[in-house]
Amino acid sequence: MNLKTAYEPYFKIGAAISRWNLHTEAHMKLLTDQFNSFTCENDMKPMFFLDMNKNMSEPQKYDLNPALTFENAIPYLEFAKENGISMRGHTLVWHNQTPKGFFCENYNENFPFADRETILKRLENYIKGVLTFVQTNYPGIIYAWDVVNEIVDEGDFRKSIWTQTVGNDFYVKAFEYARKYAADGVDLFYNDYETALDWKRDFIIKNVLTPLMEKKLVDGMGMQSHLLMDHPDLSDYKKAVESYGALGIKLHITELDMHNTDPSDKSMHELALRYKEFFKIYLDAKKSGKANITSVTFWNLLDETSWLSGFRKETSYPLLFKGKCEAKEAYYAVLSAALGPDTP
């Protein structure tokens, strides 16, 4: 038995991968053996699609239609095509990992910001270019895009270079363009972290998802779910899952991991038990119809390749596999959530 088979009746099960994973045969065998979906950790973020050298070299030519490059994305798309595995696209619009020059006159970050209409036209053509390339050359591979990522912070819309140059409605425009150019059947998602916090859940529902739903621009909500051993509270998380689910849109768990700095057997047992509780929430919500969860993605494959150790500046043991692709107790706990306690 494997994860993708166990969860096939309920939702796709995926993992994020990096270039290191992509070029490590054992890691990719683990991916195809256990998962039926994957996400690029970094190589499909704006900085990797925008060809800023070309844009800066001929700024008049590309003023409203930025030059793009797909050299970083193609190896992942080729792998998906060759192995019959689906992809989530992550992410078209983000305040981070977007070159400052994209927002400036002549694409030069030493110049003033371009006007709103110029940036919106660049945004439209960037989204059009990415979606058209992927859908023309790799039709059916990407089943969902995180169109906009992390625009809520400190009780309001995040102050960012996007809000500074375009305004708070930049995310609506991004979804308009994505809807315009996305192929039929490709789902469009808003994605964010700490989405179980009461204030953030309510703000996202009221000020992000509801306006997009009224315009028929969004298909789903992405709960990143970078968890801790003591946060969030299970009941708060369950409430959030059901609150987003009650909107009638799809729900994806997009960046699942659980920070844990203690590799002892006792601690890894506690990690396994906590993972199982979260998967029980997903399964209960799906089976009861309280949330239409269609995809759950772990943020990388192995403890050793998790972003958390670098981000937290302490070694983390947050995932289901370790070392030479060895299954941890957490793997069997997640499997048993779907199959029952007698899982082999």
Results as ranks from 00 to 15, higher is better:
Phe203Met: 06
Val208Cys: 08
Leu212Lys: 05
Leu212Met: 14
Met213Tyr: 02
Lys216Tyr: 03
Lys216Trp: 00
Asp219Glu: 10
Gly220Ile: 00
Met221Tyr: 11
Met223Cys: 10
Gln224Pro: 05
Gln224Trp: 01
Ser225Trp: 00
Leu228Ile: 07
Pro232Phe: 02
Asp233Met: 07
Leu234Gly: 07
Asp236Cys: 02
Ala240Trp: 02
Val241Arg: 00
Val241Glu: 03
Val241Gly: 01
Ser243Ala: 15
Tyr244His: 02
Tyr244Val: 03
Tyr244Cys: 00
Gly245Cys: 01
Gly245Met: 03
Ala246Cys: 04
Leu247Ser: 05
Gly248Leu: 08
Ile249Leu: 15
His252Pro: 06
Ile253Lys: 01
Thr254Gln: 04
Leu256Ile: 09
Leu256Gly: 04
His259Leu: 13
Thr261Val: 09
Asp262Arg: 05
Asp262Gln: 04
Pro263Leu: 11
Ser264Lys: 06
Asp265Lys: 11
Ser267Thr: 10
Arg274Ser: 11
Arg274Val: 07
Tyr275His: 11
Tyr275Asn: 13
Lys276Glu: 09
Lys276His: 08
Glu277Pro: 07
Phe278Pro: 02
Lys280Ser: 14
Lys280Leu: 05
Ile281Ser: 07
Ile281Met: 14
Tyr282Ser: 07
Tyr282Pro: 09
Leu283Gln: 06
Asp284Asn: 11
Asp284His: 08
Gly289Lys: 15
Thr294Cys: 06
Thr294Gln: 02
Thr294Tyr: 13
Val296Ala: 12
Val296Gly: 09
Val296Leu: 14
Trp299Tyr: 10
Trp299Ala: 13
Asn300His: 08
Leu301Asp: 06
Leu301Pro: 08
Leu301Asn: 04
Leu302Arg: 11
Leu302Gln: 09
Glu304Ala: 06
Thr305Gln: 09
Ser306Met: 08
Leu308Trp: 00
Phe311Tyr: 15
Arg312Glu: 13
Arg312Met: 14
Glu314Ile: 14
Glu314Gly: 04
Leu320Ala: 02
Leu320Trp: 08
Phe321Gly: 01
Lys322Asp: 09
Gly323Ser: 13
Gly323Val: 08
Gly323Arg: 11
